[in-house]
Simulated assay, not measured.
Amino acid sequence: MIEFLVNGESRRVEADPETPLLYVLRNELGLMGARFGCGLGLCGACFVHVDGVSVPSCDTPVWSLEGKSVVTIEGLTPHPVQQAFLDEQAAQCGYCVTGIVMTAAALLERRPHPDEHEVATALDRHLCRCGAQQRMIRAVVKAGTTAAGEGDG
């Protein structure tokens, strides 16, 4: 048995220790937000937060999560990045978007006011074939600005 937090809730799963977190999230816990893309941690469709860091769940073995905290897109809501993606129409087909939003949210946690270059660098690992990258970058910059504005005044 492996015990860890998922979206703030303690979960115990019985799985082969080498099972990828993605399979546990989808098949055991019913959380469908993270998607299978490449299975090698290269495309970004499956990214989630582990202890606040955006990681590919497809190549993160479940044994490595003992005592850690996992946040999926289902546990992220509401977040300024999600609203900014809607405002900027940054999600096209939607397949890659959950992983991109997770990475963007992690970026904003450690760098609340990123510029376009910082956002592009952070999202570089993510594969989006729809051509919405510029809108995504604008959305993340906007989310940083929006979140910053909420705390001011």
Rank of each mutant, 00 (worst) to 15 (best):
L22S: 12
L31H: 10
R125N: 06
A15Y: 05
T72I: 10
D115V: 03
A90P: 02
L76P: 04
A90G: 15
G99H: 02
I137Q: 07
A122C: 02
S64A: 12
G99Q: 02
L65E: 08
E3T: 15
R138S: 13
P17H: 07
S64L: 10
T121I: 12
V101N: 01
E3C: 04
E118G: 04
F85P: 01
G37Q: 03
D59A: 08
A120T: 11
I2G: 01
L25T: 09
E18D: 15
V70M: 00
L25W: 11
V6E: 04
R125A: 14
P17E: 13
Y23W: 15
L65F: 03
G75W: 06
H126G: 04
D51H: 09
R111G: 00
R129N: 00
V6D: 01
R111L: 15
W63N: 07
G52L: 11
F85G: 04
C96P: 06
G44V: 05
T146A: 12
A45Y: 11
A122D: 06
P112I: 09
Q92H: 10
C38E: 05
L127G: 04
W63M: 08
I73K: 02
A120W: 00
V71C: 03
R26P: 07
G131T: 01
S57W: 11
V6Q: 01
A143C: 09
V141Q: 05
G144A: 08
F4L: 00
G33C: 09
A147T: 10
I2L: 13
L127S: 06
E88I: 00
A34Y: 01
L22H: 13
